[in-house]
């Protein structure tokens, strides 16, 4: 299996991907053949029969039944074959093996939540064991989204009040991008996630650590973990550089300029509100694309994130 991708195709990260690619290249070669046939002939005629001086067409044939039948029937046969190949693979792409591990996916503007059978959940990060069929049962809390993993060649719309599903089997450990591919508003292109394919052992470990979140570690380090695992990291940095959202470095205790001209001091309550109701106070110079984490974080998670952000602010105080 090809894991680096070709000039035109992304890496093939699922079992089905190489089959899709095979069909893709078949169509590509057929297309190139017909393109060369038609445009090549046209170009040749343009050059060969170019008008030089006198008008002198050397033929006035205006039909040829045999030829016309040939160029109707052959393409027809080809497209019927393509239709069957495409359809049979499509059916296999749609019918998940019975023993597939089922994960519930919820889309909402603009993030993905994954609920595992064991009762734990993760945000924008789908962790799956390598070499096992995974079935995603998906629905949306608001508008239509679409779950797309280019490396897996799977894509499915995610609808409100209705379930849709996809399945895949990723044979090798690695990381693959999830991109929302049905237009859903301002944050559509930020609605990204990651599929982390891990070994069986790592998967069990991950399940365990996610089940007892942050037990036995202090709030600050737990917050640091959440910063990555809840995907704050896709939009925020901790080194002062700007991303989609502001950096958390030196945030705590600072005056924040808000859209509309007002100011607010970044205290614990402001941070809390920013996480749970981001649209309430939008930082000046940024787009209001941060999703609400209401319902996705436990009280201790929120405390931990705030503690982590505070720690990034205090460092500055110490340096001064």
């Amino acid at each position: 299996m090809d894991t680096t991708g070709t000039l035109i195709m992304p890496p093939a990260g699922s079992t089905i991907a190489s089959e899709v690619d095979w069909l893709f290249y078949l169509i590509l070669y057929i297309s190139i053949f017909f393109f060369v046939l038609v445009v090549g002939a046209a170009t040749y005629f343009f050059i060969k029969y170019r008008r030089r001086g006198e008008i002198a067409p050397t033929s006035q044939v205006d039909h040829n039944i045999k030829l016309e039948i040939v160029w109707t029937v052959i393409p027809l046969a080809i497209v019927i074959i393509l239709f069957f190949l495409g359809f049979s693979l499509y059916m296999r792409m749609n019918i998940a093996p019975k023993d597939a591990l089922e994960v519930k996916v919820t889309a909402q503007r603009w993030l993905w939540t994954f609920d595992y059978p064991t009762g734990i959940n993760s945000v924008n990060e789908l962790v799956v064991p390598a070499g096992k069929p995974i079935k995603l049962l998906m629905s949306s809390n608001d508008v239509i989204h679409s779950f797309f993993v280019p490396d897996f060649r799977v894509k499915m719309d995610v609808l409100p009040n209705r379930y849709t599903s996809v399945w895949f089997n990723a044979p090798y450990p690695g990381q693959h991008n999830i991109q929302c591919s049905e237009y859903c508003g301002k944050g559509h292109s930020e609605m990204l996630g990651i599929v982390k394919v891990v070994s069986d052992r790592e998967y069990t470990e991950w399940l365990e650590s996610a089940a007892g979140p942050g037990e036995g570690i202090d709030l600050e380090s737990y917050g640091e973990q959440l910063f990555t695992s809840k995907r704050c990291v896709t939009c925020h940095t901790v080194d002062g550089s700007l991303n989609v959202g502001p950096s958390f470095l030196h945030l705590f205790g600072e005056n924040v300029y808000l859209q509309g001209g007002s100011q607010v001091r970044a205290d614990e309550n402001y941070l809390r509100e920013s996480i749970l109701a981001p649209e309430a106070k939008v930082v000046d110079g940024f787009e209001p694309v941060m999703p609400t984490y209401q319902g996705l974080l436990k009280p201790r998670d929120i405390d931990a994130l705030i503690a982590y952000i505070k720690s990034l602010g205090q460092e500055q105080g110490e340096q001064q």
Binding site: E19, V20, L23, F24, I27, V79, L82, F83, L85, G86, F87, L89, Y90, M93, P150, R153, V154, K155
Partner: peptide
């Protein structure tokens, strides 16, 4: 795009 399996991607 008319071919089902490739259209998905």
């Amino acid at each position: 795009l008319g071919t089902l399996a490739t259209d998905v991607h």
